[in-house]
């Protein structure tokens, strides 16, 4: 039997295990290969500590300085909109809350479906805008590599299939849900080997930045 339900169960079962396994291998490898490199001892007299400024930057770098916002409002807004939409839908939609509760045993309140639906639509629009910007802006076009488009496609596929499944626009539904889960798994598999690592390494990057500047007495 090779129908939609078997496909769904394969994505929920063996494929989910495979994706989680590859993700765990890849992501821990990446984190270890970064952190074990360490830093050279800094002999220069510090003006301030590293820990607090580093932690500060981990949070403050989320919001751009006013000048950057003035110069690149589209980048900032589109980036914010789709990231926020994605994160909220990921963490606060009912099926995802149940998934997290089922796998990790921790749970929190979810947002009503119509809100998630709206956010998903906004996220999709934001992703399309981000792609157009990447294709049209001279800087983005110049620095983009094929991986950027692959990662975009994976991300977009996850959100789009989720939207299609919720609205039951693909029949039968197990096929729609299976496609959504599979695209999320592909994203998970690619995560440690693409720029998607930023999901985890940004914390370290920002900390190192904040620590280096903070040590010299500068808020970065």
């Amino acid at each position: 039997m090779n129908g939609a339900m078997e496909f769904l169960l394969w994505t929920k079962g063996p494929m989910f295990q495979i994706a989680l396994g590859i993700f765990a291998v890849g992501m821990l490898a990446r984190l270890f290969e970064i952190l074990l490199l360490g830093r050279a001892t800094n002999h220069a007299e510090a003006r301030a500590g590293e820990w607090l400024p580093g932690l500060r930057t981990v949070f403050t770098r989320t919001i751009p300085d006013p000048g950057t916002f003035r110069r690149a409002p589209f980048d900032v807004l589109v980036g914010w909109v789709w990231h926020l939409g994605f994160i909220i839908v990921l963490l606060l939609s009912v099926p995802h809350v149940e998934l997290i509760a089922g796998v990790f045993g921790v749970s929190w309140p979810a947002l009503p479906n119509p809100v998630i639906d709206l956010l998903t639509a906004i996220t999709l629009a934001g992703l399309v805008a981000a792609l157009l910007h990447r294709l049209l802006h001279p800087v983005k076009r110049r620095i983009s590599i094929p991986q950027d488009y692959l990662v975009w496609a994976l991300t977009f596929a996850v959100v789009l299939t989720g939207y299609l499944a919720y609205h039951r626009l693909v029949e039968p539904y197990p096929l729609a849900l299976g496609m959504h889960i599979l695209s999320a798994e592909l994203l998970l598999i690619c995560l440690p080997f693409t720029k998607l690592t930023h999901i985890f390494t940004t914390v370290f990057a920002r900390w190192y930045n904040g620590a280096a500047f903070g040590r010299k007495g500068v808020r970065s």
Binding site: G26, L28, A29, L31, F32, E33, I34, L35, L37
Partner: peptide
């Protein structure tokens, strides 16, 4: 898998 990944990463570094 996580442990294997950590070992591989540590090995690379």
């Amino acid at each position: 898998a996580g442990a294997a990944g950590a070992a591989l990463g540590a090995g690379t570094a």
